[in-house]
């Protein structure tokens, strides 16, 4: 329409890093999300120096102390310092989020790629599986899987990944369907590239933006779900400083020591909000068409 599209600026830099950084800095959500997460990341990395005490150091003389000097966020029923537990807990939250996202990402992306590229029977089978996974309520399904595998953080992560890969598969499938008819993919086929090479050299790299967006948007969900399962006693086991565990232990003293539940809850909100803002910011920059 507007004919300014025809003027192609002679861009010099081989990669588009600087303009991307400039766009990123202009995106408020992304900047706020990144700052929130940076704080969590620094806390997780420097937990040993930041935490006043070890996460499992009990002090039976100081049980259920309200927040105050010396124990900023109070202590639990074993006299453990809540602040220290929350600080160490950030490691679990980040690790869990990343591992879940990697597992579900690998699963969802591979299946989506296969379905989208091959089509036909493979597509119909994978899409069937995707639709079923999508249709079942995720937490219920995850509960069922953990019940079969047995409780424990690792099994929870597997369970969460198994119920949440379908989102990746759907998006990557439709992206791959679009890409496989692009002339550059046809040209590759005409050159005699193998199917595997086409998927990995031509299609996958062109879905990176999408994968990053989906991954960062599903991170908060992954953290929330594992926390929920830990809260239910299926994930991390005490005395692990999992935020879910702290929450579920604190809930018993909700009337006497509400701070025990409030602070891990706030930590969770902070982290989840950080990832959500980051994800939405990345989506706006990398894949604006996904915006509803």
């Amino acid at each position: 329409m507007a004919s300014t599209g025809g003027t192609r600026p002679p861009r010099r830099s081989p990669m588009r890093v600087w303009p991307l950084v400039r766009v990123a800095l202009g995106n408020g959500q992304l900047v706020v999300g990144a700052i929130l997460l940076l704080v969590v990341l620094l806390i997780a990395v420097f937990a040993e120096s930041l935490a006043p005490r070890a996460y499992d150091a009990m002090d039976l003389t100081n049980r259920l102390r309200a927040p105050g000097p010396g124990m900023l966020l109070g202590t639990d029923q074993f006299g453990r310092d809540t602040l220290s537990r929350i600080i160490y807990g950030s490691r679990i939250a980040l690790r869990v989020g990343l591992i879940v996202v990697v597992i579900e990402g690998v699963l969802g992306v591979s299946l989506g790629l296969l379905a989208g590229y091959y089509g036909g029977l493979a597509d119909r089978m994978i899409s069937f599986l995707t639709d079923i996974t999508w249709a079942l309520p995720p937490i219920v399904l995850a509960l069922a899987i953990v019940t079969v595998l047995g409780p424990g953080l690792n099994n929870v992560m597997i369970a969460i990944a198994l119920v949440s890969w379908a989102g990746y598969a759907r998006l990557i499938r439709s992206k791959a369907q679009g890409l496989k008819n692009m002339p550059f993919v046809e040209a590759a086929r005409a050159l005699g590239e193998s199917d595997l090479s086409i998927m990995f050299r031509y299609i996958l790299p062109n879905t990176f933006g999408l994968i990053v967006v989906v991954a960062s948007l599903s991170l908060p969900g992954a953290i929330l779900s594992t926390t929920a399962l830990s809260f239910l006693g299926l994930g991390s086991q005490p005395p692990a400083p999992d935020w879910g565990v702290i929450l579920s232990e604190g809930i018993r003293f909700l009337y006497d020591a509400p701070f025990l539940s409030i602070f891990p809850g706030l930590a969770l909100v902070w982290t989840v909000l950080g990832f959500t803002l980051l994800g939405e910011g990345l989506r706006d920059i990398l894949d604006p068409r996904m915006k509803a």
Partner: peptide, 10 residues
């Protein structure tokens, strides 16, 4: 379409 004939990522 020359714009989509080459792999955008290469």
């Amino acid at each position: 379409d020359p714009a989509s004939s080459l792999n955008p990522r290469s």
